[in-house]
Nucleic acid binder design. Sequence first.
DNA 1: GTCTATATAGGGATAGAC
DNA 2: GTCTATCCCTATATAGAC
Lengths: 215, 215
Amino acid sequence: MGTGPERGTRERILEVAEAFLGERGYHGTRLHYIAERVGIQKASLFHHFPSKEHLYRAVLEQGFGETEEIIRRALEGEGDPLSKIRSLLEAYVDLVAAHPERTKIFLRQSLGDVPSDFQQSADSERLLGLVVAFVSEGQRARLLAPMDPLALVLGVVGMVAFFFTSVPVLAPVWFSRLQGAANVERVKRHVVEMVERCLKVSGKVGSGADALAVV
Amino acid sequence: MGTGPERGTRERILEVAEAFLGERGYHGTRLHYIAERVGIQKASLFHHFPSKEHLYRAVLEQGFGETEEIIRRALEGEGDPLSKIRSLLEAYVDLVAAHPERTKIFLRQSLGDVPSDFQQSADSERLLGLVVAFVSEGQRARLLAPMDPLALVLGVVGMVAFFFTSVPVLAPVWFSRLQGAANVERVKRHVVEMVERCLKVSGKVGSGADALAVV
DNA sequence: GTCTATATAGGGATAGAC
DNA sequence: GTCTATCCCTATATAGAC
């Protein structure tokens, strides 16, 4: 996937920047820190990126690109809608668990921690739209149970992101008990099961049909 | 509850600071902004709070105090555990919906957007502990279904917070359809029902018993 | 493409008059 | 308790040598 161990300075900067932006936020990240960890002088950063904001955007775009690829890969191809959803959830949980810093950046951005006069891009809305459209389509074909797809998708995104980003800070003692690969699998099963209960047509759906049904 | 319309400057500062800290984060908030909106000079802020960090802590403490009060009020008194949980959830959703800025501050803090060399207080862990202990107790008494209480509480907190803070930024178009008091009620019913399905002893619990069961 | 040195700006904080 | 004026530091960004 990558270009091998011979990665350029630009890639190394992006990598380090992602870690810092996730950990300390845009305004909390000093270019000095990034330069130091990369092993170059602060001024040298400006040879690769014209400004801090451009660097931020580059990190964002890279993250969005990979996320979108995973979503498309899971939703394309053959199979019934529910099993595609399952694949998507599993891939999503893996992605978040593997890149908590990136997830933190997305969360921060969604809270408004962006450069001043920053134009929120339509990327997040487009990604959400992909999934929501897929669920809606499955529902129209009566292959998925009727439930507001937006509420479902947002709920899942919020839960999963919160688990792997906030919990370690909020409840470190407890998080230590949730760590490790085995627990990623547990979260995965948990989320998959929850969503399946909501979307399986055969099962009892409860009042899920009207709850948050704004569509 | 309040001291009436004759609120002092200190209270006004806290109010404005909360709004800005939620909207732009600690490092993104300029004391200049706060002073301007309050209608005083920047230097005058230092008469009320010795530093930006002290102001931040004051805002945090106020928020934690009110949240803890709501939790205790819901869990104390008479009634079966499940109906107390229901009261708690309803009060919590109302609280978050009424104070999205405050919720944003908590979320930001849980992401690590804090003053440098800031000591994370044990407050959040204590609040979570209150609820988790209550659920555990109900489970030991066989009045609540067995499910990892921490996973449940964290999941709910993450979902609700995400709904009222990130969604407006992430998907403004869709959020406009979710706005208004009527939709707060919908979210409330949605969350209550989800939790009830997980904790009701009579109903089928599915594999919720082992999912995330790390206790 | 990386360095040293420096420009420029802005933000937190203080001093002291009123 | 609020003001004006100012200090001091740090952070982004630039200039120009190597």
